[in-house]
Write a protein that binds this DNA or RNA. Structure first.
Lengths: 168, 168
DNA sequence: CCGTACTTGTTGAGGGCTCAACTAAGTTGC
DNA sequence: GCAACTTAGTTGAGCCCTCAACAAGTACGG
């Protein structure tokens, strides 16, 4: 059943173009950030979310949700950011399992230093390339993609991968 | 000058939504592929491009271009695929520096086994979520993004990163 | 209470990627 | 014909991420 619905030529082209565009864009932004601020984009996101949180701090789990990251990944990332003194860990008062990640002043300063360049990159490489109408479309498209993925969408994940060939 | 053009609230939301959608999508597809075929998406791409090439083979550099990968990354990847017997290296007849990557029969079989499931994922998670009109828009948007990035776009890369703050 | 089940967060191994350095071979200009 | 430069591809160190296993705490049912 999986193979009943191949992609037609038009869809193929769309898929590959989309893939190419996103990878070019994210690679570029990631590289600019690494070069100018010394951190990958995922770490930048962590700093951003912390900077927006009350007290500049969040539970690890919350932070993981906000950044779309696994708990494991976040744990490793925060460990790195802690080494630099940009984030600190504190015990949670109400739940002894919990850890609060707190953005330090140095972390805030690092973010403040990195943000203008990064935002500039986003503007130049993304928004400047699109018409206002396309920007609107892009948001709707993105929302449409998120919907099913964020919801269950479980049918596909759970299904015994519709064999169709994995072979031995 | 970099900080002269911040993102307004609308742009912020669009950017974050776009980021969220693409990461959800690619993470999901990558995971499905890893689970069902045992390879990351980047490796899948290599197999696809080889399978479409005459003689199922391409120069390393060509393959790198087609897959949007660095030579280094490709070299590592092909080494891995070679270990599995899915790709073989052959010397190039006309250029003694050159290496041909060739898709083996086992590699072709692995691709044939993995493709239906992956294509199904792309359809379900991407195309089924969008209207035909949105699919058309997505391609145009992607093309618009690629344009400047693929061309020089050098102004930003080369410029002494418009300081505006990196420094501490 | 107390055992079972779930949640929170961490850890380490393993794999993929980037960057910079390097070898080897082709190219150019004199 | 040869020195300087460019191009092809590889390598290793280091970093980030995933996955699975785990310790420690909380919540719930009897």
């Amino acid at each position: 059943m999986a193979e009943a619905r191949w992609l037609d030529a038009e869809e193929q082209r769309t898929w590959r173009t989309f893939l190419g565009a996103t990878h070019l864009l994210f690679d570029r932004l990631d590289r600019e950030l690494q070069r100018d601020a010394g951190i990958p984009h995922a770490y930048y996101e962590i700093l951003v979310r912390l900077s927006e949180a009350p007290e500049r701090s969040l539970r690890m789990s919350e932070l993981a949700r906000h950044t779309g990251s696994s708990r494991s990944r976040l744990s490793h990332a925060v460990a790195r950011l802690e080494e630099r003194g940009w984030v600190a860990r504190r015990d949670c008062a109400t739940d002894k399992r919990g850890q609060l990640a707190v953005l330090t002043d140095d972390g805030y300063a690092a973010l403040a230093a990195a943000a203008p360049g990064h935002v500039h990159g986003v503007r130049v490489h993304l928004f400047d390339a699109l018409t206002p109408e396309q920007v609107r479309q892009l948001r709707q498209i993105s929302e449409a993609i998120i919907g099913p993925l964020a919801a269950g969408d479980a049918a596909v994940t759970a299904a015994p991968p519709a064999d169709g060939g994995r072979t031995r």
